[in-house]
Simulated assay, not measured.
Amino acid sequence: MKKYGFIILNYMDYYGTIECVRSLQTEINKTLDSKNTVILIVDNGSPNDVGTKLTFYFRKSKNVEVICNSENVGFARGNNFGFDYLKRNYNLDFLIVMNEDVRICDDNFLKNISKLYLETKFDVLGPDIISRKDNSHQNPLRCNSLSLNELKQWKNVMEKQYEKYLIFYLKNCIKKYIKSSNLTNKYYTKVLDNIVLQGSCIIFSKKFINDRKYLFYPQTFMYLEEDILDYECKRDNYRVVYSPKIRVEHLEDVSTNITFKNNYNKEKFKLKQMIKSANILIEYEKRDL
């Protein structure tokens, strides 16, 4: 029997994380023995004591564990903290990393992961991710990687936006610049190889788990983790697959909406972190040249 692990990174979202875990437990109970699954909640230094509350809430759940970071170390390092824990304590066949605002909407989600592995031998797998905001399909994020020159140009666009504080136009600017030439909505219906996956739900198979010291490049705080993962997978010859045969729903920005009470500050924070991550990826790629 295959062993499945989940990492759910939480920041301040008590009720959303509980709902996420409950949906996972419902799916697990339909198809598998709970002994073959482990759900790990990583609280990323929530200042509202959510980690302690979640530990108490799930204290009697046999396949749910909660570990707490002492501070918010960001998306990459928070997930890496959970990855290190699971790798040391469990011999997993598959690891599903998902935001607390993701909900499974397939009856055979876990069994289909195993079937897709037999068909494709993926190292990294992305499901069809459906936004609850507008019913858009968020995977694949892009069909083509950004070249180093494209990445530099994108960073320059973001820096100009930040300098002028045109934060409310950030999303439209980025989507127009990146997605219009790389991705149209029709691609979500196809099985695709070696594309850039959206980061709210990513599945890793055993070889990737065993090979790697970390899941996500640990230097970023938030954003562009998918692009760095894409770069590393292409460099190291890991097979990345997108498949519409498994589906999840994504509520989007729940933790950031809790953290920031107005859209202006939220978008300004996101833009600043994207610029930082773009600089990190640019330097990373330059070192490999």
Rank of each mutant, 00 (worst) to 15 (best):
D84R: 15
K155N: 12
D123H: 09
Y117M: 05
L110E: 06
N144C: 09
G126N: 05
K152C: 09
L166M: 12
L86E: 09
E71I: 08
P140E: 06
F81M: 09
K160G: 14
N80P: 09
I67Y: 09
V64Y: 04
G126T: 02
Y90H: 15
L151N: 04
K111Y: 11
D101F: 07
N89F: 11
R142S: 10
N72Y: 08
R77F: 02
I113D: 12
K111C: 08
E119W: 02
S131P: 03
K60I: 06
L54Y: 12
T55E: 15
F83C: 01
E65F: 10
R59F: 10
F122A: 08
F109Y: 08
Y90F: 15
Y169M: 12
Y165L: 10
Y57S: 00
S61L: 02
C143T: 13
M98I: 01
K111N: 15
V73L: 11
K115G: 06
Y165P: 00
E65M: 09
L116R: 04
E119F: 03
D107L: 10
D123N: 13
L92R: 08
F109P: 03
W154P: 00
Q138M: 15
Y165H: 14
K121H: 12
K87T: 03
E150R: 10
E119M: 06
I113L: 10
K133D: 11
K62S: 15
T55I: 01
V66A: 12
F75G: 01
